[in-house]
């Protein structure tokens, strides 16, 4: 019973991440980053940063025991 509940909680958290990720990785937000940091365009940083952040959070949510 608790395993089932745990699984469903993990799934809901992941779905929430997806719902946060979609607006972050689409227009209009992706048109905002400009300029450059260390020679690399801001958009490059932004896209890979948000994307990597989502993956990191997903890994944390999915692999955490017991949570």
């Amino acid at each position: 019973m608790s395993r089932v509940r745990h699984t469903s909680a993990v799934r809901q958290r992941l779905v929430a991440l997806g719902l946060v990720g979609l607006p972050l990785l689409t227009f209009p937000l992706v048109s905002l980053p400009g300029g450059e940091i260390g020679g690399v365009p801001g958009l490059f940083w932004y896209l890979f940063g948000i994307w990597g952040g989502l993956i990191g959070l997903a890994a944390w949510v999915a692999e955490r025991r017991g949570g």
Partner: peptide, 22 residues
């Protein structure tokens, strides 16, 4: 430009809806 990334961002977001795949 960077718009090719959409082809890989889409699957990333869909995987988060893993409950559908399950």
């Amino acid at each position: 430009g960077l718009s090719f990334l959409t082809i890989y961002i889409g699957p990333t977001l869909m995987l988060l809806f893993g409950t559908v795949i399950a």
